[in-house]
Nucleic acid binder design. Sequence first.
RNA 1: GCGCGGAUGGUCUAGUGGUAGGACCUGAGCCUUCCAAGCUCAUGGCCCGGGUUCAAAUCCCGGUCCGCGCACCA
Length: 615
Amino acid sequence: MSEQQTESAETDDSIGEKLVELAKRRGYFFQSSGAYGGVGGFYTFGPQGAALKGNVEDAWRDRFAVAEGNMEIDAPTIMPEPVFEASGHLDGFDDMLVECPDCGESHRADHIVEDNTEYEDAESLPIPEVEEVIAEYELVCPNCGAGLAGQAVETFNLMFGTNIGPGDSQPGYLRPETAQGIFVEFPRLKEYARNQLPFGVTQIGRAYRNEISPRRSIIRTREFTQAELEFFIDPETDEPDLSAVADVEVRLYPASEQNVEDGEEIRTTIGDAVAEGVIASPWVAYFLGVAKRWYDAVGVDMDRFRFRQHLSGERAHYASDCWDAEGELDGNWIELAGFSDRGDYDLSKHAAHSEDRFTVFRQYDEPKTVERATVDPDMSYLGPEFGGDAQAVVSELETLAERDRAAFEGDSVTIDLDGESHELPTEKTGFAVEEQTEAGEHIIPHVIEPSFGVDRLVYTVLHHAYREDEVDGEDRTYLELDPEVAPTFVGVFPLQNDDELEATANDIVADLRDAGLSVTYDDSGNIGRRYRRQDEVGTPFCVTVDYETLEEREAQRASDTASGDAPRAEATTVTVRERDTTAQKRLPVSDLPELMADLRAGELSFGELDGKNES
RNA sequence: GCGCGGAUGGUCUAGUGGUAGGACCUGAGCCUUCCAAGCUCAUGGCCCGGGUUCAAAUCCCGGUCCGCGCACCA
């Protein structure tokens, strides 16, 4: 996670400040446990925020799981220690820091020791010993030269630890990324994919990092939601369908440009970027293209969006290449997602540390015939002859057969066992050279990982949607949220306090809710106040029932009665107001559920509505 | 974890060693035929813990939290 400073942040009341205030007041998000003084780095999403976040997650699921044909899982947030020994998180989680008493700078104690003594793996030393070494060698602060002897060496645990079950016999950790929950289950997941590469597994869930200093409200917290896709490929044969995203235009900020002065972002297309080698991995490029379109659809401002390649020193321990999606907020670029080529790092690690197989069988186009030297030792001979060493002799024979067939040409074979030579008759080894057919081989898939930060995205969507304008000489604040993600979709109001208006409005509320829409009803104060209230939470549309609605209904009933038909109420209309323009149209009540559902799905825009203009 | 600056109703804020006022919001009522109008009433607050003092929201110390910088960021 990195936040880069670009131009100086806007000074007077940044949007961020105003947004945090609005978020608190209107129920988007606020600090948790406020009644107990609050706790750093934890936020609660309020009613609007939870709905918005849920909509964003649904949109992500639609795009990255459903539309891509990937499978979604939901793994535990706590996993036992060996998982993180394998993943490499445990090694790096225990940073030893020592602080200079003079200049206050913090340094990695293990690095200072390694740089200035003959110790090579200071990280594995216990803390008291590191402190002793610092005193013994009179090590000094690399920054100002002050002596560090006597300074306490402290550790930072970036993973939250806990104990599974009673006692402390089984330590566990809250996952620092959702990814491990997928990797650990790979042996079973590959079965569900019928052992066919490529396939992808997604997960939306919480991850935890005990950050030293959480910052900037919801941007950097200790508990956050990730939406991750682990896409497993055969690195030699699988290729993405780049044609689907070749024409997607992107702003790229490659490492090569970041490393030079006056380096510039490149505006190009995914197709060209791959062709010109700017993006090395076609798979990463594919997901960058998909992601760009998706970010645009959920409301990230594409003028404040780019992809930035990680510098080599910036990459995680597992990644061979990584691009971040970044959004600009008040002049700062913040990371919204990372797209890593993790290679076979994770699956290899879990294969080495666990009992399970993390490979997939790759069938050859045609079976290969290979000549293979094998042994089939006569154990009734080896047993009595070598006793407990018999098994070691067998494995020694096996490797020898593969390595050096000539060794079996004579009447006896010589093997090496713990530095001692032993001779045994060739006939007892069962040596043979056979032709075998191989249908394929077991390979460790490579992993392409698009990893999205959901909370940061929610914040960015809100930030980019923040608008201030003037309506009839009055200031107005509104959130120009995309209808697809807006937490409340439509507000329904009676124009005034009037029993009939209210009853009709309530009927409309019920109809719209039946259509699956998120509806709010409001009859307080005057109509303008209610519009502004909905503007501020970003509700795209408001429906107002007025006296014309009631008159139309009376007229309709009268004509129905006169013509002998059963009374109907279908010809009545209401005004529908659009948030962004405050424009109004009169639309038939009976059409509302369908029209509103289409507006929400993005299949229709307000401008296309065929209604009588009111404003 | 360090440094600097902060913390007063839901939100934004004024304020003094004698326990607090405003604006907006919210609720009730009146009024109101489409964009934060007006009138009446009401709810609601000094971050936490110590200390100094007759008296602390105010001064001091510690803590928590927030913002910024440093460091960290799998």
